[in-house]
């Protein structure tokens, strides 16, 4: 897994590449939490380059969503591959997150 961070119009865009499984979920969680950081952060997790996410990865997103809620921030997800989208649909997580076709749309949706 490789994570890069970028700021687009005041919205933080986190790009996760490769696999997220129980082996590197801790790293993913740290990246998410540090990206949320201050109050009112708007965060997009772009999954265009993501090939696999396990339930541990979903848990990280859940932790991040909770942290964002506490700090009055917001999180959106973007550019899921079909099989990733399937994971979200099956687990019902699709209903917990805003999901957009691409990062630009997600940034726009967060008001960036």
């Amino acid at each position: 897994m490789n994570i890069t961070e970028q700021s687009v119009n005041g919205v933080t865009v986190l790009r996760a590449e490769g696999r997220i499984d129980s082996g590197n979920a801790g790293e993913f969680e740290s990246a998410l939490l540090s990206a949320i950081g201050a109050e009112g952060t708007r965060l997009v997790v772009d999954m265009a380059q993501l090939s696999y996410i396990s339930s541990a990865g979903l848990r990280c997103l859940l932790v991040a969503a909770k942290a964002a809620r506490t700090k009055r921030g917001s999180i959106a997800l973007s550019a899921m591959a079909p099989h990733i989208r399937e994971v979200f649909d099956v687990s019902g997580f699709s209903s917990l997150f805003e999901i957009h076709a691409d990062a630009a749309a997600a940034v726009a949706a967060l008001g960036g």
């Binding site: 979903l58 099956v90 687990s91 019902g92 997580f93």
Partner: peptide, 29 residues
């Protein structure tokens, strides 16, 4: 609750997912 839908195979050998129901993984929310 957010689990992979089980498969049902009829006596004729047709395999089908069980229809999904509204729900989400437990304890998430």
């Amino acid at each position: 609750g957010g689990h992979n839908p089980p498969l049902r195979m009829t006596a004729s050998g047709t395999v089908k997912e069980l229809e999904r129901t509204p729900g989400i993984a437990l304890a998430a929310m």
